[in-house]
């Protein structure tokens, strides 16, 4: 399939712990993560905090060096960058939206000086007049108009939603092909979240970009994506077409996640779920399947060997021996 734009093959990321007591101990933040992203597709990476989903985005973004495995962009292995040119070429194609709109804009800079940087770094504007037009275009593209009103303002003069729009404008400035969106709406007020989500969906269509949409919210993932990958304790547990994964969740963890999500439309209080325990320590991850300590169906074999990703048809893969 030559429609694939980004592919991860068995990528792992281990963080070394600091301090004498922790010498030679590592955090298994991301283990054996493999998936691909098609051109113009939106893939949701769903997981709880500590599941490794943000690490995955950061590794793809080149902010953390991967421990092992390979990342391919357009079929070419990319990271780590050997030259600054290679790094810039990659960043021209892959951009990231950060989670916290209050932390991701430098409080000491104006919107103009924040937004003009990508154009200057990647030499996208030929003249100051062209730059001015590009700045206005990119602000108006994210619904901040009239753009002139916003350019001279400081981040603290904008609301959370407006700041996140500026962030999105900055990531789209270089006309990237892939956007890594790290929980872009989780810090925003409920009433404006959907507006930002709709805008991202529209931009995805208009600019033909691929989205890796990272979230902890299964329902939000359903709204935003065509495929879903669910991560738990550093590993992908289930990946497949959105409707299929949500309607016919196979992995016990995904079933638990689905049962836990608020579901107001069901009209009655839901039956109790067999939830026990919490995400395990990633310094000493459980042997075998990482979910077996909480799994209601765990058998002896689950604690002995790490299950492989199994194809259950229709592009649906599950990491569980019981399937």
């Amino acid at each position: 399939m030559n429609n694939v734009i980004l592919e991860l093959k068995h990528v792992s990321k281990h963080f070394a712990l600091s301090g004498l007591r922790n010498i030679s101990k590592v955090v298994h933040a991301m283990d054996d993560v493999s998936f691909f992203l098609n051109k113009g597709e939106s893939l949701a990476l769903v997981g709880e905090s500590g599941s490794g989903k943000t690490t995955t985005a950061s590794v793809i973004a080149g902010m953390y060096e991967k421990t092992s495995g390979e990342i391919y962009l357009d079929g070419q292995p990319v990271l780590p960058f050997k030259t600054r040119e290679a790094s810039l070429r990659y960043k021209k194609k892959v951009q990231m939206i950060f989670q916290d709109p209050f932390a991701s804009l430098n409080p000491t800079h104006t919107i103009r000086s924040i937004l003009e940087r990508p154009f200057l770094i990647h030499k996208l504007a030929g003249s100051t007049r062209e730059l001015e037009a590009m700045l206005c275009d990119s602000l108006e593209m994210v619904g901040l108009s009239p753009a002139k009103e916003y350019l001279h303002r400081f981040p603290h003069e904008l609301s959370g939603g407006q700041r996140q729009r500026v962030n999105i404008a900055r990531t789209f400035a270089v006309s990237p092909e892939i956007i890594l969106a790290d929980e872009p709406t989780s810090m925003l007020d409920v009433s404006i979240r959907i507006g930002i989500m709709n805008m991202m969906l529209d931009l995805k269509e208009k600019k033909h970009v691929s989205f890796l949409y990272i979230t902890h919210d299964l329902a939000g993932a359903r709204y935003m994506s065509t495929r879903i990958a669910v991560m738990y304790a550093g590993m992908i547990m289930e990946i497949g077409p959105t409707e299929e994964v949500i309607a016919n969740a196979v992995h016990p963890y995904v079933q638990l996640l689905k049962a836990s999500a608020p579901a107001p439309q069901e009209g009655v209080r839901k039956a109790a779920i067999p939830a026990k325990g919490e995400i395990p320590s990633l310094v000493h991850p459980p042997s075998g399947c990482r979910f077996h300590t909480r799994c209601p169906y765990a058998k002896k074999i689950c604690s002995e060997e790490v299950p492989a990703m199994r194809d259950i048809g229709n592009g649906h893969f599950v990491r569980c021996v019981l399937v």
Binding site: M63, S87, L88, K91, M96, P118, I121, T171, V174
Partner: peptide, 8 residues
């Protein structure tokens, strides 16, 4: 991190 991401 965001500035690093755009290549500063």
């Amino acid at each position: 991190r965001a500035s690093k991401m755009i290549g500063e």
